[in-house]
Design a protein around this nucleic acid. Structure first.
Lengths: 333, 333
DNA sequence: CTGAAAGCGCTTACAG
DNA sequence: CTGAAAGCGCTTACAG
């Protein structure tokens, strides 16, 4: 037994396919109550589910948004973004779906062949080669949201993140601050640069010494190397702003192993507000990004592109928020 | 200027749409080299990208697999699964896409309307209400892979995980072992139960005392409560198998705050092998799941369902692997 | 208020 | 070797 179609429903309800289509699509203003009910009954009886393919082909519009899955270490934070983006788009009648960037980068461009989205969204900027087939297929794009792209494209104020870290440390009286950069992947390179730029600017504006910039890999040995360098320097670094919470925890644990007290000898602040930050000792100060707000912002931008008619509610970008814990302030009580 | 279609290409190449279709779909065995080249030239010149809609409608088959995004704390581990699943399916000519379960659960069933997948995949078991519309739309399903479902459905041997933990601890001489359950969400309830069941069975088989089962929330206070209870018990618990690395780290940090030495007073082993485990002090013993293998297994199962003709290479399920670090063995050297 | 008809872009027997 | 034609399941002017 094959799939139930519009025609089947029409036959069962004793009306034309046209009428069924109107009822199913809630464009039934001009259909009398009685007819509508007959149709709805038939739909229910037959368990009719409209074909997305037929609909997409006939209407010429897609109701799917593809988001290239943001990667990077802060997966827990990203989850929140995805959820909010999905919910916002769903409320507008779109389905949002996430795509992993294939390990074989060349195949990336092939992926749209099957999906047929109204819009492709990406945290980082897509290359021209990646963009071209999309353009040709008439797919809208919203890219460079968080990484890459211009600073205005970004839904998250990355510079503000670095700035917030340094300002917090400066407020606590630190004059010699280090910035811990991550080992870069394509994904977070531009993010790291933007955060560092913000941190650097804040240091200058606060009249601090130039930042000591170090790269910290996520392992104990590398952490210890960095901490030793900072504490040995003259004058010594007394605080470090880390690219993310994972770098911060690496530094925090390295300090413990080296007998460097946190925050007395070295204050540490991360970014992301991972749950982890509340588990370690001392607990980790950090900067929380409001990715829910960012996602709502992005959703609004997407809808503006795919539904130019729709009323777009502008979303203001909320500034990053410093979460103060023991690693900068010391144990309370 | 509107989108380039098959017809445009046919016109440009001076052949029929039929011929173009054959060439584009690599079914061109019987098309002479010269014609094929003319067509390929036209495709390139016009930048033709076939319409997924038209193709899906005409062929009656979808090349899209939707995977309901696995959630849970171990996001970093899940990433690996997703990547592998995507790659495997891509190699078979399918596009794999991930869907967030909406916060408003009722809307979940609506999501297929726009996507039109060949198969829906889910880590946990879907409810009957969720399954029904899929069935009606002729969409294959592969569910209960990791959570829910029967033990045979599972791509990951969850019982084996708990078993591996307890066997490792028993080998080290521990006789009184606790199991730290997570605060349950829908996602990991059945996983937790399966792991506990495996742990319990292993304890029995090894002739150990019954496991002390405690729930540990991810915060310092709850961790300390649990650690105190274990150390105060008579005879005291000397080792704990935690549901996941996050629970394990919570316990580890709580121990430190209480002055309970790890592993001398309390040995700890987690699950997931999160990067975090190598940063904390002492470093965390854990059980690593081979999610790449699991994903390959799942991909094979999916292909068997959507392409019954295809040759399915059976994938053997690799057993969980214990990663021994300081939290059970003590600091080396 | 309702339906016949054209068309969305493709695939695929089938006939030449 | 190649193409005319039907059809996939729907939407949407348009005419009644």
């Amino acid at each position: 037994m094959s799939r139930t179609t519009l025609k089947d429903v029409a036959q069962a309800a004793g009306v034309s396919p046209t009428t069924v289509s109107f009822v199913v699509n809630r464009r039934a203003d001009h259909i009398p109550e009685s007819t509508r009910r007959r149709v709805e009954q038939a739909v229910a009886d037959l368990g009719y589910v409209p074909s997305a393919r037929g609909r997409a082909l006939a209407s010429g519009r897609s109701r799917v948004v593809v988001c290239v899955s943001p990667s990077g270490p802060a997966a827990a934070v990203v989850e929140e973004f995805k959820r909010e983006l999905s919910d916002s788009l769903m409320a507008a009648g779109f389905t949002c779906v996430f795509l992993e960037r294939p390990s074989d980068g060349d195949q990336f461009v092939q992926l749209w062949r099957h999906i047929d989205p109204a819009c492709v969204v990406s945290w980082d900027a897509l290359t021209a080669a990646e963009l071209l087939p999309l353009e040709r297929a008439g797919v809208a794009t919203v890219t460079g949201l968080v990484m890459g792209g211009t600073d205005e494209d970004r839904a998250v104020d990355q510079q503000g993140v670095g700035r917030a870290q340094v300002e917090h440390l400066a407020d606590l009286g630190h004059r010699h601050i280090a910035y811990a950069m991550p080992v870069m992947t394509r994904e977070d390179e531009s993010t790291a640069r933007a955060r560092l730029a913000g941190a650097t600017a804040a240091a200058r504006e606060s009249g601090l010494a130039d930042l000591t910039v170090s790269t910290v890999d996520l392992d104990a040995v590398d952490g210890q190397r960095a901490v030793e360098a900072w504490t040995r320097a003259t004058p010594s670094v007394t605080a470090v702003a880390a690219y993310g919470d994972l770098q911060a925890v690496t530094i925090l644990e390295a300090s413990r192993r080296l007998g460097v007290r946190v925050p007395e000898d070295l204050a540490i602040i991360g970014v992301d507000d991972l749950p982890l930050g509340q588990l370690v000792f001392p607990t980790l100060s950090t900067v929380a990004l409001d990715l829910r707000a960012a996602a709502a912002d992005v959703a609004a931008r997407i809808l503006a592109v795919v539904e130019p008619a729709g009323t777009t509610v502008p979303v203001e970008r909320r500034p990053p928020r410093v979460v103060v814990r023991e690693s900068t302030l010391g144990a309370g009580a």
